[in-house]
């Protein structure tokens, strides 16, 4: 495991300032800035110069999960202004005109979808998207993958088919209503079955919707899931509260 952290949307949905403030109390090395609705994008990007993100060695940006066709070009222009090294997580089914995204393709991390969506859920379905945007990377959502195929064979297929594209993992429980929740013991067991296939360089981003009191325990749970050997000293440095 390289770096671990949270999506701001899991900490405080729609309130990135509060999320960043809460997370500053911990020593996580990764953060995903989440702008899941179109109206959240511009304010978040405008606020970037004021945010203290210096503690994070990995930062990504989650683009809106849906937008109308008229918003696509303006969105692409907004996203272009982000630091080039930040992966931009994008839902494949949100794309209206793939050609418009080609100039940003190398910065995109296409995410596998949950089972509400008619496409982009499996390795076979995502191959089509990567054929259109061959330079794009991938954000592999383990919760979505488990929801689509609870045997985890689907997750295994995603991990092995796109191992060289994966830059980030999303990890959380995804319940019957497609909400990102605290990871259950059944999900812990399921996720641990694919841990050896997770690229070591991939950043781990938690999407479990947590209360403030659950931030550390949920992260420690993910650590347990993804690590066979529990190096207590290293783990503690990973999760220590910032002084």
């Amino acid at each position: 495991m390289s770096v671990l952290g949270y999506s701001t949307g899991a900490i405080a949905l729609g309130d990135f300032s509060r999320a960043i403030a809460l997370l500053s109390r911990y020593t996580f090395s990764a953060i995903e800035l989440s702008a899941l609705r179109m109206t959240e994008v511009a304010p978040l990007i405008e606020a970037l110069p004021t945010l203290d993100l210096s503690r994070y060695s990995y930062i990504s940006f989650h683009a809106p999960s849906a937008f109308v066709v008229e918003e696509e070009e303006p969105l692409i222009e907004l996203l272009r202004a982000l630091p080039e090294q930040w992966p931009i997580v994008l839902h494949p089914d949100a794309i209206h005109n793939p050609a418009s995204w080609e100039s940003l393709a190398g910065r995109l991390a296409i995410e596998n979808m949950d089972r509400r969506k008619g496409t982009g859920r499996s390795a076979a379905e995502l191959k089509d998207f990567f054929a259109i945007l061959p330079d794009a990377k991938m954000c592999l959502d383990l919760g979505h993958a488990r929801q689509v195929d609870s045997s985890m064979v689907g997750a295994y297929q995603l991990l092995t088919t796109f191992s060289d594209r994966i830059v980030q993992l999303h990890i959380s429980e995804v319940d019957t209503f497609n909400r990102h929740d605290l990871i259950s013991s059944a999900a812990e067991l399921a996720f641990s079955q694919v841990r050896k296939f997770i690229p070591s360089h991939a950043a781990i981003v938690l999407e479990s919707r947590v209360k403030e009191s659950e931030i550390l325990s949920e992260a420690e749970k993910v650590w347990r899931i993804l690590n066979v050997e529990d190096d207590a000293e290293f783990r503690e440095s990973f999760f220590a509260k910032a002084s």
Binding site: R115, G118, D149, S151, V153
Partner: peptide, 15 residues
């Protein structure tokens, strides 16, 4: 049509 349920059930049976 959509094979998601089919694949999931087959994989879980094999599991």
């Amino acid at each position: 049509g959509d094979s998601a349920a089919f694949n999931r059930v087959r994989n879980n049976i094999l599991k």
